[in-house]
Amino acid sequence: MRNRLGKYVSSINTLNVEERALYCNTLILAEEGAGKTNLACRIRNYVIDSNVATLYLDFSNSEEHEIEIRYKDENFNYIRFDESDEFQAEFDALVSQNKHIYMAVDPNYFSNKRDITSKLTFTLQHKGLLANYYYFFHDIENLNGFYTKFEDFLLYMLNFLNLKKYGLTFLAQPHSSFENPQLKLLFTFLYLGKCSNLEYFNTANLKKLPKNRFFYQYRTNYHTLLFNDIKSNIVQIDEYLFKE
């Protein structure tokens, strides 16, 4: 199983992804070119090796030829979202067969009205996905605009974790909006559980890290009356190279 991610910078210990990663949520914050895709691809490999289907949502709406070669293994099934019946039929067929899916998405398909649920959101709430798939949300470039305009997506994310069986990985750049206390609270709730310290990450420090080096944080599994501690380490992620 491809469970090795890299190593801890401060020790000789190996950094491995564990089974809890299938059910807990992962937030990857890093600048363009810092290794977000590399880390996500390694997590995806572990999920695939665990016999869990994956849905990779590329909000950059990439053409198939623009996608990195490391994703184009035997599990790569590209599809581009639109609201047509033809798309829905192709998508339903992939889900019914539990195929791994790489879906390019234009985020403008989300509704910008609170009382309207978009067809895109209905698609992401497909029962087959919620029961059988691990989700990746990748490359939402204008974070502040995304969270203020696409209320449909925000409302979806808030109840999303109560609907699905497995966890998710969310990739984003350390945009200044992450220093907004309200957004920090939202992401703390979604990805780490309630946390009293809003400074559990600092985007200015994240921007100084070299490629494939991350500030790794996770909540301990110890059972306590209060929320468990968050442990922090600097880690170096191995580069994943895939050849056709």
Rank of each mutant, 00 (worst) to 15 (best):
V17N: 02
V17P: 05
Y23G: 06
L29S: 06
A30C: 06
E32A: 15
G33K: 09
G35F: 03
T37G: 10
N38W: 08
N38V: 05
R42G: 05
Y46F: 14
V47E: 02
T54W: 04
T54G: 03
D58Y: 02
D58W: 00
F59T: 06
N61R: 10
H65L: 01
Y71P: 02
F76Y: 15
I79L: 14
F81S: 05
D82G: 05
E83P: 02
Q88F: 11
D92C: 04
A93L: 11
S96P: 07
Q97M: 05
M103F: 02
M103N: 12
S111N: 11
I116L: 14
Q125P: 01
K127E: 15
K127F: 10
Y133V: 01
Y133H: 05
D139A: 07
D139C: 05
I140Y: 04
T148M: 08
F150H: 14
L155R: 15
Y156M: 15
N159I: 07
L161D: 13
N162T: 09
L163E: 11
Y166G: 00
Y166N: 04
L168T: 07
T169E: 07
A172Y: 01
H175K: 12
H175A: 13
S177E: 06
S177A: 11
N180I: 00
N180W: 00
N180C: 06
Q182A: 12
K184L: 02
L185V: 12
F187S: 03
L190S: 00
C195N: 12
S196I: 13
L198E: 10
E199I: 04
A204P: 01
L206R: 07
K208F: 08
L209N: 04
N212T: 08
R213P: 01
T220K: 14
N221A: 15
H223D: 13
D229S: 13
K231I: 13
Q236E: 15
I237T: 01
I237E: 02
K243A: 09
E244K: 15
